[in-house]
């Protein structure tokens, strides 16, 4: 590892979660404007995490603290891998481990809502992970390598070679950002049947760390989506913002679906589209 790779990895470790926090702020402001409200300040997610960090509360289970820290470590590791130009497939697997740790921590809790949320988190994993993996295979095939640097160095926008990937990636973004209609595990907007789902039993400092892990995840997912138009940093940023804006709009205009619809209809359709694109790339 040379010094340049090390500094890129360090930048990924520090800046990626911060960028995820800003994305959460933009999301809340845009959502409020779509609902004719003024909305919170842009830095509100950072205040929320600061507040949660300073709260004093006994954990629902001692195992939870351990799983939260593992989830955070895995999410940050996926950021570091991507920032250092590492293997995107490895980054994907590490991030899947992070989501599994969140579910395991929720299973340790005593609340039935927490356990139900954890089960739904596993259903979500089952639904979006195959689509996301095929999407990464397509990106790698089209760019000629699995490492992030070669995908970003691809000639021209990959979008024109991978048009059938877009519905799949929008599905993945909706699930990972915990947005309707696929906000099934965490019930982001309160007062729904699972209270706060997988997050119900996490509180105080553990919940703050979990939020930071979520920000890191969001950055990774939007970053991978931005590979569709990776002709320059500005183009990548704009592509990421387009996916974010699409997710916010869909969140505001749609009701929540059940896990059966997610797993039985949306996941197979997006998987078939992404696989068709992969086959097309091989036949070309």
């Amino acid at each position: 590892m040379n010094l340049n790779t090390f500094s890129l990895a360090l930048a990924g470790l520090v800046l990626a979660p911060l960028l995820g926090g800003v994305v959460a702020g933009v999301d809340r402001v845009v959502t409020a404007r779509l609902q004719s409200r003024l909305g919170p300040p842009l830095l509100q997610p950072f205040y929320d995490v600061g507040k949660l960090w300073s709260k004093v509360i006994a954990p629902a289970s001692h195992w939870q603290g351990l799983f939260v820290r593992w989830a955070l470590a895995a999410s940050l590791a996926s950021d570091v891998l991507l920032a250092a130009g590492g293997d995107v497939l490895m980054c994907f697997f590490v991030q899947a481990a992070s989501a599994s740790f969140v579910a395991l921590g929720a299973f340790c809790g005593s609340s039935p809502y927490s356990k139900l949320g954890a089960q739904r988190e596993l259903f979500q994993l089952l639904a979006y992970e195959p689509v996301f993996m095929v999407a990464i295979l397509c990106l790698a095939k089209a760019a000629g390598g699995f490492d992030a640097l070669s995908i970003m160095a691809a000639q021209g926008p990959l979008l024109f070679k991978l048009p059938l990937l877009v519905p799949g990636l929008v599905f993945v973004v909706l699930v990972k950002l915990r947005k309707s209609p696929f906000d099934i595990a965490a019930s982001h907007h309160m007062h729904q049947e699972v209270v706060r789902g997988v997050y119900t039993d996490y509180a105080g400092r553990d919940f703050a760390l979990l939020e930071i892990a979520h920000w890191a995840d969001v950055t990774v997912v939007l970053w991978i989506c931005s590979f569709l138009w990776a002709t320059g940093p500005v183009q990548m940023l704009v592509t990421g913002l387009v996916f974010l804006f699409a997710a916010v709009v869909i969140d505001n205009i749609s009701a929540r679906l059940t896990w059966r619809t997610m797993l039985g209809r949306v996941a197979p359709i997006t998987l078939i589209l992404a696989t068709a694109n992969l086959v097309w790339l091989y036949l070309e």
């Binding site: 629902a60 706060r196 919940f207």
Partner: peptide
């Protein structure tokens, strides 16, 4: 929500 207020359904939050 201008003031950062969110209505939550969970006392732990």
């Amino acid at each position: 929500e201008r003031f950062g207020v969110i209505n939550v359904g969970n006392p732990r939050h």
